[in-house]
Design a protein around this nucleic acid. Structure first.
Lengths: 218, 218
DNA sequence: CTATCTTTCAGGTCTATACCCGATTGAGGG
DNA sequence: CCCTCAATCGGGTATAGACCTGAAAGATAG
């Protein structure tokens, strides 16, 4: 029987060892390496050349998405399965764009993880059922909106940039100086952002920016 | 040999099953139940009366700390081990105050998890090494500050309450109405909060409130 | 070519807030 | 008993921001 050679990457050691224990119960699986961050995962991929890489999405140094890009660049035949705790629209999109073959939630069962590994190894895509629907609506949105400016948040790139600066605590004046534009322009963008998001206070904008990972809380 | 009866609670099914697989390798352990949130954990404790409860700290419905309080109220002889991804000062404090016997990070190894379970079962406390130092400094702080009002953040209870309302997007006027106090009082508190935290914009206050878990981003 | 959209800027009004000063009340500790 | 501090409230000023209208240049799509 063909063994499926697997690399496991998760920054939480005890969780990673739990996965190893779980996956070793499957006799066709062989865990060839573990990594505790994205950087290490890329190195171990180059060294051990696994069939499937299971990547936790939130890792220090290089996160799951960034690691996916590098691994795919190294060898696009290696299949990547992303493990995530977020059932967040944008993440799913990002992950597949980066070249992953599967995306499953940590809420799913061990049996599903095993199934997902087998599927991506066969060259198929695998999605947690509760995630699948996002891709469909996402696809519809892409078709509807084409490639025209506005993306996930409904904000233009410039608006996103300004939202980020607002959420980082900058005043309109500081933003204007930083971007070499007039305060009035910043005010207009700010107004537009508020209209589009239907959020009319800085605290709300900041929470939104954090929840959408435009900025970090700390 | 005495078996140690264990209840596992973690909202991420695949992670929980990984833990089960890992812990079942230890012949003196018996996993008597699993729960996917704090509420369920409390119910299962009442039904199965385990020796040790392993609680993930971040769970929906009831989080690890809240579940700890209820379980201890039900039967204080049941030992509780908190699993957390945060090596956050305040969390550690909160957890032990709630009645937990151990606090270990997900960064630690499976071997350490097993050791921690055995220790708390014997009635000892267990802390991840990298966490232990917090308790020491914490103890010093408590001694230094006594029980005088100001705590971790340097804010009074009232100031914390107002910070929360600010970070939730309320204006001074709304806060005043909500708390049945004058706008002027709210302004004074707001000023005091900004002085104490040395943060002089709403975005910064909001990020601070999220990072200190006073509010949530979403 | 025209319509739409992004990005830029300006005028004005009005309210919210940052920051200054001051004060009183009540609780708790030394 | 006094001192400290939290919590309350007030006046006043100056700036920031919310919200309005209008407009123009450049890019892109149809």
């Amino acid at each position: 029987m063909e063994m499926i050679r697997i690399l496991l990457a998760d920054d939480h050691t005890v969780v990673r060892q739990g996965f190893r224990s779980l996956l070793e119960e499957e006799k066709s699986f062989e865990i060839v390496a573990e990594a505790e961050n994205g950087q290490e995962a890329v190195l171990m991929v180059e060294k051990t050349r696994p069939d499937v890489v299971v990547l936790d999405i939130s890792m220090p140094v290089l996160n799951g998405v960034q690691a996916t890009v590098r691994i795919q660049k190294f060898n696009s035949k290696i299949k990547i399965l992303i493990l995530s705790m977020y059932k967040d629209e944008e993440y799913v999109r990002e992950v597949f764009h980066a070249g992953a073959s599967g995306y499953i939630l940590k809420q799913t069962t061990g049996a599903e993880l095993i199934k997902a590994i087998k599927e991506v190894n066969k060259g198929n895509a695998y999605l947690s059922p509760s995630i699948a629907k996002y891709l469909v609506t996402d696809y519809r949105e892409i078709v509807k909106e084409g490639k025209s400016g506005r993306r996930k948040t409904g904000l233009t790139p410039r608006e996103l940039e300004i939202l980020q600066l607002i959420a980082e605590g900058n005043s309109n004046k500081k933003i204007a100086v930083q971007l070499f534009i007039s305060i009035k322009t910043v005010e207009t963008h700010r107004q537009k952002i508020m209209d589009v998001l239907k959020i009319h206070d800085v605290a709300g904008l900041t929470r939104y920016a954090i929840s959408k990972r435009i900025i970090e809380a700390k």
